[in-house]
Each structure stands twice: as structure tokens, then as C-alpha cells.
Amino acid sequence: MYSYKTLVVGTDGSDTSLVAVRHAAAMARAFDATLVIVCAFYSNSGSLLNSPNRNVSTLPVVSDNRADEYLREAEAIAREEEVTDIKLERRSGTPVNALLAAVEDTSADAIVIGNKGMSSLTGRVFGNIPTEIARRSTCDVVLVQTEDK
């Protein structure tokens, strides 16, 4: 039977990201896997034309201090789900690059990501984080339904 040993999930403090964290935590508990929770702190020019993995930046979107707050909140959710092996990682960079680097650095078997932005026109035209993760990931991608129906 196939089993996951390490799962990566990202949080930006949003309600939708915390839904993905809860799903990832439930998976980690079921597989007795390590759960790596990542929060990217990064900057953004504010342009609608920025792709999810663009490196150009000017205005802070998530500060490193705020990232720590988001990680503590996500850790509390993972503990509620009774995950025993949790690693918190604050990474500089865009969400896509930070998550993919965490996958590589931890040799993760899967990355759990919410579907936010996939059904929006802007996301379809200019790109979104879940789609870019699915395109570039070297491990399984678990897509969680996080948007209101």
C-alpha cells in the first residue's frame, strides 16, 4: 500500500489556506506523516499582470513577522487534528517558489494546496498558484476545494 511520509502545505493566513491546512493535517495524521507548513513572505508590485511566481516586487504583502503569526495559527489547526510531527517554515519568496523549494528540500511525497483562484477569470488569464504548483511540482499534488460553492 502506498503511503505518504512528508506532506507540504502552505498558508497565507486566509480562511481558504487554513482549510487546506486542515485537510493536509488530516492526511498527515492518517499516514503518520511529517507535516511541513510553509508561509512565504514576499513582496508584490501590485500589478494585475503579475504571475503567481513572478520575482519582481516593491510593496510588502506578507511580512516575516506576519508569516510567523500565520504559521502559529496553522500549527494550532494541525495540533487539533492530532498531527505529531509538524515542521514550520517561513520562506522568503513568492508562494509558488517557496512551496516548491520546501517540497524539494524535504523530499516531500505530496503538496496539498487549495483551489483559490482557479475558477476566476483573472486566475485563468494571468495564472494562479494552484495551477502553477500542479505544472511545476515533482511530487503528487492534492487539490482541496476551498472556495464557497
Rank of each mutant, 00 (worst) to 15 (best):
G123Q: 09
L99R: 03
V8W: 06
V103P: 01
T34C: 14
D148R: 07
N97D: 15
A25W: 02
K116T: 13
L59I: 12
T146K: 08
V96S: 03
T34N: 14
P95Y: 04
A74L: 01
S14R: 07
E82D: 11
N128H: 06
A74S: 09
R79S: 09
D68C: 04
I113V: 15
R91P: 01
N53R: 03
F31V: 02
K87H: 08
R90Q: 13
V125A: 13
L35T: 10
L99H: 02
N115S: 15
I86T: 03
S3I: 13
A25G: 03
S107F: 01
P130Y: 10
L59G: 01
E73L: 07
S137Y: 04
I129R: 03
G123L: 10
D109V: 11
R91G: 05
L18R: 14
S119A: 14
A110H: 00
V36Q: 04
T131R: 15
A28R: 09
A28V: 08
F126S: 05
E89W: 09
G93S: 08
R66M: 12
V36S: 08
V96Y: 06
V21L: 06
I77M: 03
S51P: 00
L18Y: 03
G114V: 07
E132G: 02
P52R: 05
F126Y: 09
G10L: 04
S45H: 08
V62A: 00
R136F: 01
N65I: 02
M118Q: 15
C39V: 12
V21E: 10
I77H: 08
S120G: 13
P60G: 00
Y42K: 04
D68E: 15
N55L: 10
I129K: 10
A33K: 10
S51Q: 14
A110P: 02
S57I: 00
G117D: 12
L121R: 12
R22C: 03
V141L: 13
T58G: 04
F126D: 03
E82G: 00
C39N: 15
R54M: 14
E147V: 11
L100F: 02
Y2H: 11
R136W: 05
S137A: 15
C39W: 05
E132F: 05
T122K: 15
D68R: 13
V38S: 10
E104N: 06
F31D: 15
E89D: 10
V112S: 07
A26W: 00
G13P: 08
I133E: 10
D32I: 00
G46R: 02
A20T: 06
R22A: 14
N115G: 01
V56N: 14
D109K: 03
L49E: 14
E81N: 05
V144K: 04
V125S: 07
Y42I: 13
I129M: 07
A108N: 05
T131N: 14
T34S: 14
D140G: 07
E89P: 00
G10R: 05
V83H: 05
V36N: 11
D85S: 12
D105S: 11
I77L: 14
V83Q: 06
L49H: 07
V38K: 07
A28L: 04
E69Y: 08
